[in-house]
Amino acid sequence: MAHSGINVLFEGRNLIRLFGGLWTTVEIAGVALILGLLLGIVLGVLRTFPNRLLRLVLRLYLEFFRITPTVVLLFLFYYILPRQLGVNLPANQMAMLAFALWTSAEMSDIVRGALISVPKHQRESGMAIGLNRWQLYRYVLIPQAVSLELPATVNLVTRVIKTTSVLMLISVMDVINVGQQVVEANNQKFPTGVFWVYGMIFVMYFAIDYPLSWWAKRLDKKRLERANG
């Protein structure tokens, strides 16, 4: 008797396993984002400081992450950390670390961009009323920069979530790896199951990323309306 492929999702614990894999994906993306965004804010603020050496080093940090594809980055961490530096982390944590550093680099550029586009008179007025550097950032620059950078930050979040798909390459049991196993285990019984399993994963990613990118677009539109009147 022919089985309809969609039933592969409801066979045994397949669906639960897929959602388990999704949770691993979300967990890694979540931790990487929290660490990466925070570090990125600090680095972004530092990049607006006048110290040239500091700016150069942070710029090189950014460019390194910019020109290295995430797949390559992941493998750099995967091979270099244990073999050269003797750091043995489970694949999940290694992925969190790699993604967090990558996020921080991208975030630093967003934060820097937002900070330097706060109008100059704001900074100068702040200094004129005698704010020190910490107060200037805390009360004048950062609050204004947040609204400028928010759409880009949300877009970065969606990018990081999408990029977690490459985790399967370093054998993290993420949603795609689980999906592959489900497909292989059920290939005999459900020859068209592959379509439904990957279709399900497709929908899962879309369901997470679409609301975020919709939100980013709306924020951006609001910002443009405010700017153009």
């Binding site: 999408k162 990957y198 279709g199 497709f202 990613y205």
Partner: peptide, 22 residues
């Protein structure tokens, strides 16, 4: 919206492994 909110890897898996079934 569909294309930019899903990862390339999943799109490729779909094209490479799922489409032949069809």
């Amino acid at each position: 919206e569909v294309s930019r909110n899903t990862p390339l890897l999943v799109q490729l898996f779909f094209l490479y492994y799922a489409f032949p079934v069809l």
